[in-house]
Computed example of a mutant assay.
Amino acid sequence: MINLNGTIISSNEVALTNENRAFKYGDGVFETIKIQNNKVVFFEDHYFRLMASMRMLRMKIPMTFTLEFLQEEILKTVKADSSGNTTFRARLTVYRKDGGLYLPKTNEIDYLIDVTPLEVKLKEVYTIDLFKDFYNYSGLLSTVKTTNRMLNTLASVFAQENDLDNCVLLNENKGVVEVTNGNIFIVKGAVIKTPALTEGCIKGVIRKKIIEIIEKHADFTLEETSISPFEIQKADEVFITNAIVGVQSVTNYRKKKFSKEVTQKLQNSLRVMSITGG
Rank of each mutant, 00 (worst) to 15 (best):
H46Y: 09
G100M: 05
Y102F: 12
F65V: 00
L57Q: 13
R58L: 15
T32N: 02
L57G: 12
K34H: 12
N38A: 11
L112E: 09
D27L: 02
N37V: 04
E44G: 11
V115E: 01
I35L: 01
L50Q: 05
L67N: 14
K79W: 09
Y102T: 13
L103H: 07
L57W: 14
N38K: 14
V78Y: 12
T66D: 14
R96C: 05
G26W: 07
L101M: 15
P117Q: 02
E68N: 15
K97T: 13
F42Q: 04
D98Q: 05
F48I: 13
A52I: 02
D110T: 00
L101N: 14
Y95V: 01
T64S: 13
E44F: 06
S82Q: 14
H46Q: 05
L92Q: 01
R58C: 14
L103W: 00
F88Y: 08
T64W: 13
T66K: 13
T32A: 03
N38T: 12
L103I: 12
R58P: 05
H46A: 04
K60P: 04
T77M: 09
R91I: 15
P117H: 03
R58I: 08
T66N: 13
I113R: 00
T32R: 01
M59N: 06
P62E: 07
T87P: 05
T116C: 11
N107Q: 05
I33M: 07
M51L: 14
P104H: 08
R91G: 13
R91E: 13
E68C: 09
R58G: 10
G99I: 04
Y111D: 06
G100H: 06
A52C: 03
Y47K: 04
V29Q: 02
N107H: 06
F43S: 03
P104E: 05
M59L: 10
S82F: 08
E31A: 02
L101I: 15
R91K: 15
F42T: 06
L67I: 05
T66R: 12
S82G: 11
G100F: 01
R49L: 06
N37P: 09
E44L: 13
F30V: 02
E68Q: 15
